[in-house]
Amino acid sequence: MAAIFILSTMILGGTLWLALPTLEEDDRPLLRIPKSFVQLQALNGLLKKYRDIYPYRIVVCYVTTYLFLQAFSLPGSMYLSILGGAVWGVPRALLLACTCVASGATLCYLISAAFGPALLTVPKWKARLDKWSDKIRAQKDNLISFLIVLRIAPLPPHWVVNVVCPHVGIGIVPFWISTFLGIFGVSVIHTTIGSGLDEMTSAADFHLISWRNFFLLSAVVVGVLIPVGLRYWFKREIASVADVEQGVEELPEQEDEIVAVGPLPRGKKVTPAPLLQLSDEDSDEYSQDEEDVILEAGPAIVVKYTEENRSDSQRDLL
């Protein structure tokens, strides 16, 4: 870890040495990572002075410094977000700050994935990691929303989330997306404060804790939890439909039950036709004949009833 930190510091220093424009002697002491309101205002004036002359160089130096702070969870990220709002305005600074936070946290994620297994041999750290693993598994269906809420909440610290995530089965893509979306609300507050940095006289003018910021973060949390609520609602509806279908399939088969029997229908009495009587000679010839005998039917006889005998004939049939 010490070697990685020293190498990263050298890369940061080399990038600033190559990308930064040539500064005047009076401006060089102002170039530092801001840790107070006075240093922040001094760096703001320095960047605005060289922003119009060397726009791309200033962006490269800003991004490299931001990634360094996030990769090693060093203080100063909030001041850089405020500084971005002062230098580039809220829209561009917001996108830049969220991208830098997500990418820098991903670097911390990779460092933890490479060197973290050595800490897992310590029983104390292993027990804490198992506790977090259980919480993550419980929120497996709502993983992105759960990580976004962790980013918005003040506890646990963000560096804890960066270090723990690679060891509890969270992929790098969901981690980056949740970090970008989770830091969005806070970055809006910081960049908005930075847009009025020139008119401020002290850090008390930041107004980080205010009703406006509270409602803004609350709106972000509600927006994140809406998909969770919809997923829970539809999941419950689908489960109820599945229970109904399962209950229908489990019903035993029952035989049809006859409730009542009505009178039998009365049909017309059919008189069978007399059988054809064959003589002994005809029957012998019929049995010796191998060909089929085709009986041809004659024309049908239609019996017409008159009104007088219709009732008598119907009575005879019944």
Rank of each mutant, 00 (worst) to 15 (best):
N142E: 11
G171Y: 07
F234N: 13
R128S: 11
F206T: 06
K235M: 02
L155I: 15
W125I: 12
D198V: 14
D243C: 04
S218Q: 04
F184M: 13
I170L: 10
T192L: 11
W159K: 06
C165Q: 03
L216S: 07
V248D: 02
F175H: 05
I152L: 13
M200E: 01
Q139S: 05
I183A: 01
V188N: 00
W211K: 11
L230V: 07
L150M: 15
S240F: 08
V188K: 00
V161Q: 02
L208M: 10
P123W: 06
G247N: 12
E245R: 15
F214E: 09
F115G: 08
M200C: 01
F215Y: 13
V161P: 00
G171K: 13
F215T: 04
Y232E: 11
L143P: 07
S145V: 06
H190L: 12
T191F: 03
I144S: 12
L197Q: 00
A219Y: 02
R231E: 10
S210Y: 05
F146L: 09
A239R: 14
F215I: 10
L197R: 00
A153P: 04
P156I: 03
E250D: 13
H167P: 07
I238E: 14
R236A: 12
S178L: 07
G196L: 06
K126Y: 08
W233I: 13
V161F: 05
P174G: 09
C108D: 00
V244C: 04
M200N: 02
L129Y: 02
T192W: 03
G223A: 12
A203L: 11
V221M: 09
H167G: 11
S178H: 00
P123K: 08
Y232D: 09
F180G: 01
I172D: 05
E250V: 05
D141E: 15
Y232K: 15
V173I: 15
L155Y: 11
W233L: 14
F206K: 06
A203H: 00
T121I: 01
K126E: 15
N142T: 13
I193M: 14
A204P: 01
F115N: 05
S133Y: 01
L208T: 09
E199L: 15
L230Y: 09
A239S: 10
G116F: 03
P166K: 02
W159S: 11
K124W: 09
I148Q: 00
S210W: 01
F146E: 05
L129F: 08
T179A: 13
A127I: 10
P156L: 14
L216C: 09
W125H: 04
T191A: 12
S145A: 15
H207V: 09
G169V: 10
D130M: 14
S112L: 06
V173L: 15
F184Y: 08
L155F: 15
A118E: 15
K140D: 14
T121Q: 12
I170Q: 03
